[in-house]
Structures are given as structure tokens and as C-alpha cells.
Simulated assay, not measured.
Amino acid sequence: MNPKESLSKETYGYQMCLYQNFWCPKFSLEPVIALQRDFQACDTDIFVINMPKTGTTWFKSLLFSLFNRSNEGLLNTQLQTHNPHELILSLEITIYAKDKNPDLTKMPSPRLFSTHLPYDSLPESVKNSKCKIIYITRNPFDTFVSSWHYYSKLENVDNNVGCSSTMEEYFNKFCKGRSLYGPFFDHLMGYWKESLERPKKVLFLKYEDLKEDGVLQMKKVAEFVGFPFSIEEEKQGVVEDLIKLCSIESLKEMEVNKKGKCDPDFENKCFFRKGVVGDAANYLTPPMVERLTKIMEEKLNGSGLSF
């Protein structure tokens, strides 16, 4: 039986199927099943994992630059010619979507991957190996607003419904957990708990902390993945230069992101908007803020995690 036909369905920008208690994009369901079955993690692998619209593009640029700073420097970077999503590929959206049985054995170590999968739905080899997971999240208010703006741009992609629903209708779905790869709080709590139980395997980062003190956070990331900045690099301002290179403002002005496309129907500029903290205040009404605040307080109660 075709699993797409037997699962509950919903729409949040894209058509989704409820699979393993999360809302999987319909177009990614078969790739997800394939990678869960076949993907073999290496102990040296590094995964960028998050919910959509919580800093994926930005953090991919930071991590790629971190690992490639010695080889190419910061002036001759591949970021000038490739969108960050082309430099760190998504398992379910790119790799397994193109080939259900890809040969990943020839990729140089460390292999850098990304995924939006919840922790419980990761391939067993990822959970059981010594690979590293960097999880980045963002406050739910800005996450929702960013997702709304993003999906409203994609109404012509993959029969996307785009703006056929109002912001209020999308907000209602988000609050009920019916968003891409959601529920939002279940997703982040899965990785938060793992980061507490296995801090050497899972590093939990907040978008807001990266914005407030990028130097401190990137030094933490570099230590975590075993590629720390040297004292000389710190003196030379390499960390600051890396953060400046990968800023939203810098990425938006790169020609590849102004005019390039990840595929024939998708423009790279769709990945970039404001990239600021607190922008939700310009869009959410007081009742919406009150509703989501109550949900957040209930879901995070006693966890030690806050926004």
C-alpha cells in the first residue's frame, strides 16, 4: 500500500503527511523512508538539524566556513558561487530525493549533512554512532512569522497553496502543531533532552544567542566539532571575519543569492528576509501572542529551556 495514501494529511505551505508523529512534507516522505532504512552514519559525520525557518541557511554558511577557513580562506569562499544549501546538503530534501540509494562513501570526512527530522525519526545509525549533532532553534514567535513569509513566496512551487489561507489560519495550525516537521515544541524538546543527556553528541543552540554573541557561540561550535580556532586566529580576528562574511546582510548581497536558483522553480533570494530577533511583534496581535505564550509555557514547563 502506498504510505502517502494511508496517512493523515494537512497543508502548511506544502502538503504534509502525519508520519511517525510529525508532519512530513509529502514530497519528502519516500526519501525519509529510504534514508531511515539505508543511511549509515560515520563517527566523524556532523549534522545540522532544526525546524524549518529557524536559521538553517545562515547556520549552514557558518558551519561550512568554519571547516573551510584553512583551505580557501574567507575571501575566496564557495559561498560566493553556491547557496549554503548546495554546500551542506539535506538528506531528505536533496540527497535521497534525487537518489533513493546514493553512494555517500566517497564524500570527504567530516561529512556535513542537514535534516529537519525529529530525533526519534533519525536513522538508528545516527543515534547510535559517535557522530555530532548541532541543533539550532529559534523562539516560536519569530519562527512562525518567518515561515509565513517564506511559504507565501512559494505559491507556484510544487502546487504550493501559498497565501490561499490567511495568517490567522496558518497561526492556528502552528499552535496545534500542524506545521512542517512539527509539532514545533515536540521537535525541539526531543533534541533538548538529548543535549542534556549526551552533551558530547548534541549541541543545542539558540538563534537569539548566535545573534547576540556570535563569537562566543562559534567558538563553542568549533570546540564541539573538534576544529577549534587557534590563539593566532583569534588574535587575527578570524572568528569576527567569519561571522561578518556569513551575516544575513552579506549573504543577501552575494550574486548567487540575488539571482541564482537551487532548482529551476526556486530562487535563492527566497531564503533571505530580515534575519532579526523580535520581528514577530510587527505581525502578531496581542491575542495571538498570549495564546502562543501559554502553549510555550506549558510545553517547556520544568525543562530548564526558555526563550
Rank of each mutant, 00 (worst) to 15 (best):
K4Q: 13
S6F: 12
L7M: 03
K9Y: 08
E10I: 01
T11L: 05
G13L: 04
Y14P: 07
L18H: 05
Y19I: 01
W23Y: 08
K26W: 08
K26V: 01
S28M: 13
L29G: 00
Q36E: 11
R37I: 05
F39A: 08
D43C: 09
D45S: 02
I46C: 10
V48S: 12
I49C: 08
M51A: 11
K53D: 01
G55R: 02
W58G: 03
F59K: 05
S61T: 01
L66E: 06
S70I: 13
E72S: 15
T77N: 06
T77I: 11
H82E: 03
H82Y: 03
P84C: 06
P84T: 09
P84E: 05
H85D: 07
E86F: 14
Y96V: 07
N101F: 14
P102V: 00
P102G: 01
M107Y: 13
L112F: 05
T115L: 06
E124P: 09
V126M: 05
S129W: 07
K130P: 00
Y135D: 08
P140T: 00
F141M: 13
F144R: 00
S147W: 00
S147I: 04
S147K: 01
W148I: 09
H149A: 12
K153S: 12
K153P: 02
K153T: 13
N159Y: 13
N159M: 12
N160M: 15
S165Y: 14
T166M: 04
M167K: 08
E168N: 11
F174G: 00
C175H: 03
C175K: 04
G177W: 04
Y181P: 00
G182I: 10
P183T: 07
P183M: 09
P183R: 04
F185H: 04
F185D: 02
H187M: 11
H187A: 09
H187E: 09
R198E: 10
K200F: 10
V202A: 08
F204S: 00
Y207T: 05
Y207A: 00
Y207E: 02
E208G: 08
V215S: 14
L216I: 10
M218N: 01
V221M: 09
A222W: 05
E223N: 15
F227K: 13
P228W: 13
P228Q: 13
S230F: 06
I231D: 15
E232S: 14
E234M: 15
K235G: 06
Q236V: 09
K244Y: 14
L245I: 06
I248T: 15
E249W: 02
L251C: 13
V256N: 00
K258L: 11
G260Y: 04
G260K: 04
K261V: 11
C262I: 15
P264T: 13
N268L: 07
K269L: 10
F271H: 05
F272L: 14
G275K: 09
G278R: 07
A281P: 07
V289L: 15
L292F: 11
K294W: 10
E298C: 10
S303D: 12
S303Y: 10
S303W: 08
G304I: 01
G304R: 04
